[in-house]
Each structure stands twice: as structure tokens, then as C-alpha cells.
Computed example of a mutant assay.
Amino acid sequence: MIPKINGLGRSFAGVAAYCLHDAPTPDERSPETSERVAWTDTRNLATIRAERAARLMAATAKAAPDLKRLAGGSRGGRKLAKPVLHYSLSWARDETPDRREMSRAVDGSLEALGLDGHEALVVAHEDTRHPHVHVVANRVDPETGKAATLGNSKLRLSRWAEGYEREQGRIRCEERVKNNERRRAGQELVRTPWERPRHWARVRRERMVPGRARRARGPRDEERVDMEAWRRVEAEAWETVADGRWRSLRHLETRAREEWVELHRRQEEMRQRLDRESRTVLGRLRIWRTERSLRELAGAIRGRQDLVEGWREDLDGYHRDERAELGKAHGERAREIERGWHKFYRSRLVEAERRAWAVRETMKERQETRERERGPSIIIPIPRPRQPRGPERGGGGFER
């Protein structure tokens, strides 16, 4: 089982058209045939017709503020820009799951992502050698209007896929099992050397893209500098910048990983301590003393469940704020590294232009010195042979 998140989007109609029709070709951008579709199904929708599912999900996403108001919540908050989630589930070539088995896997994956109560469109394709199914889910809850948080969605699907393969009685991806065990232990994942520095979510967030950082511009006046010398100095400068940036960002990544492991360990200890303290009266009183609320004294003594759940929610909110602050700090460090190396690169370009101008001036001085040593050039006229005139030219000139 290989789950793959294709990404988030804005248009339900666009992704539904791709799933419900054949793959587009260069000549035909919007094919009308649907030969690769084996079967379709819906989840939590008032219709079983796949053609109407996209419109209903789009209407639900558009009515999110009204759903929040009807559920007793606030209509405020940032508007959800990408309500569409598109992912696929693929089986091995030697597996032959039927529709019932595929539907069971889809329900399990939706539950792992926390979308079991959300609207979804399921489309199974049979145009490849391996069976696979596409899932188009609506992130907006049809009852509360709130958007589902998809943090660590790939990790959730990875753990679910490992459990699914264990239920089937055969582990087909050993590396996934090793990586999940290392994640639980807080260790580094097993990756090939060229994959280790590529954490693309962090790359996009912290702008750690080495290939796009080079902004070499030519000198202001190319006629006054030696371009060969300028290109040579610029290449040396960029080589220094690229190597330094890679080392700096690798050091930041290692340090950030250690800080994240320490933060998760400390937060887990705080959660476990809260669970232990909430089981005894003395522990609940100690928590109440930190809360400083007289209204909760009786509830703390009786061990009221809603009060304990409120403490847990407050602790989770505090932990979310901690993670957000740590992520912002890492992003700011990465931007400082980028700004520092960009400043260094621009200074080296100025130095390259100065050195190239000096090379050009030196070459000009040498040429002038060479001309002075040769002395003034004396032009000796070469006499031209006398040209015949008149009748001697063979019929031109004087006429008779």
C-alpha cells in the first residue's frame, strides 16, 4: 500500500474532472471519455452521482461561515483558501483488491486523516498495472463549518499504511517500518545521501532553495571591464557562497532537529504528568493552585471530567504556541543566513567588477606602453604604376 497526497487545491470541479475522465493528452486538453474509471462512490453526500459531488462539496465550502454560525461558533477567522484535498491509494501489481476492500481502505485512510465525517468523492482507476483509487475530500466539516487541520498528514498515512499491511499479513515496504520506528524514538530517518537535506515543506517555508539564490548581474559598463576576469571572480564567489550556505543550513537543520526532539520530549512529559496528577486529589489541587480559580476548587476535588479535559485543552494550546514560536525562530534563523550570504555575494560582485576594471586598465596601459616603445609609425608611400590613357586603353578616352 502506497498512499500519496497529491496536494491541496481550490477547485473541486477541476480535480473531479481529472479523476472522472481519461488522462488529458497534448492534443485534447479536456477529454470526454472515461474508459479508465472502474467505479465511483461518495462519502457523507446527499447524492451518489459523482458528477454532482463536486458541486455539493463546493457549496459546503462556500457556506462555511453560515455553518459556523448555525453550530454556535463564530463566523470570524481567516477564509479557507484551499478546501480541496486530493490523495490516492495504490496497491502492488500482484494484489487484486475488490471494490469492497478498496472502500474499506478509503474509510481507514479518511479516519486516519480525521476526515471520516467529511464529504468525499472516491474514484477507482484501472488504466495502470497496479490497482489504485483517488480520493477527493472536502476539508470543511459539513456540520461545524470548521476546516480540518492536516498537520503531519503524510506521517498519519504512513502509520496507517503500515498498520494496513500488517493486517494483510505482509509488509511490503520495510523502509517505511524502519522510519516509523525511528520517528517514535526521535531518531533521524533513513534516507539516501541526496535525500537527506531535502525537507521540501521546510525548504518552501524557510526559502532554503540554493538553485534560485544566484542572482548574478553583469557589470554596469561591460565596455570598461574585462568580462573574462569578471566571470572568473564571480564563479569563485558563487562557489564560496553555495558551499557556505549549504554548510550553514545543514548546521541549522541539525540544531533545529535537536530542538524539536527536545520540545516534543518535554511536551510529552508535561502531558504524562498532567494525566498522573489528574488521577489524585492532591495532584488536582496542585493543578488548581496553578490555575488560581476559586470556581474550580470543588470541581478539582471531585475530579470533574470536563475540568480535566479543559486543562488538557489548555495544555495543548500552550504546546501549539510553543511549536509555532519554535518554527518561527527557525525560519528567522534561516532568513538571517540567506540575508548574510546574499550580502556577501553582492559584495563579492562589487569586488569582481573592481578587479575586472583593474585588469582592463592594466591591459590598456600595457598596450599604450608598447605603442610608445615602438615609436611613431612612418608611412612610406608606394608608387602606383602609370595607367595608360586614351586610345592606349583599348577603345576608351579620345574618340576620332
Rank of each mutant, 00 (worst) to 15 (best):
D107C: 04
G108E: 10
G108Y: 04
S109C: 13
L110A: 01
L110T: 06
E111N: 03
E111Q: 05
G114P: 06
G114L: 02
G114F: 04
L115Q: 08
G117E: 12
H118Y: 10
H118S: 06
E119H: 07
E119K: 05
V122I: 08
V123E: 05
A124Y: 02
H125A: 10
E126A: 13
D127Y: 02
R129A: 09
V133P: 01
H134D: 07
H134S: 06
V135F: 00
R139P: 06
D141C: 12
D141T: 10
D141P: 14
P142Q: 06
G145Q: 09
A147G: 11
A147Y: 05
A147S: 14
A148W: 01
T149D: 15
G151A: 14
N152M: 05
S153N: 11
K154F: 01
L155W: 07
R156I: 01
S158L: 11
S158I: 00
S158H: 03
R159D: 13
W160M: 04
W160V: 00
A161R: 03
E162Y: 01
E162F: 01
G163F: 02
Y164Q: 07
Y164A: 09
E167I: 03
Q168I: 06
G169M: 02
G169L: 02
I171S: 04
R172T: 13
C173N: 13
E174A: 14
V177L: 06
V177T: 11
R182F: 13
R182T: 00
R183Y: 07
R183F: 01
R183D: 08
R184N: 15
A185L: 03
Q187Y: 06
E188L: 12
E188H: 09
L189W: 04
L189S: 12
V190E: 15
V190D: 15
R191I: 00
T192N: 15
P193W: 08
W194G: 12
R196E: 13
R196H: 10
R196K: 14
P197N: 08
R198N: 05
R198Y: 10
R198I: 13
W200G: 00
V203D: 15
R204F: 13
R205G: 12
E206S: 11
R207V: 04
R207N: 13
M208K: 04
V209E: 14
P210H: 05
R212G: 09
R215L: 11
A216G: 01
R217I: 00
G218P: 10
G218D: 08
G218R: 11
G218A: 12
P219C: 07
R220A: 14
R220L: 10
D221A: 06
E222T: 07
E222N: 03
E222D: 07
E223K: 07
E223P: 00
E223D: 09
R224A: 07
R224G: 01
D226N: 08
D226K: 01
D226C: 03
M227S: 07
M227W: 07
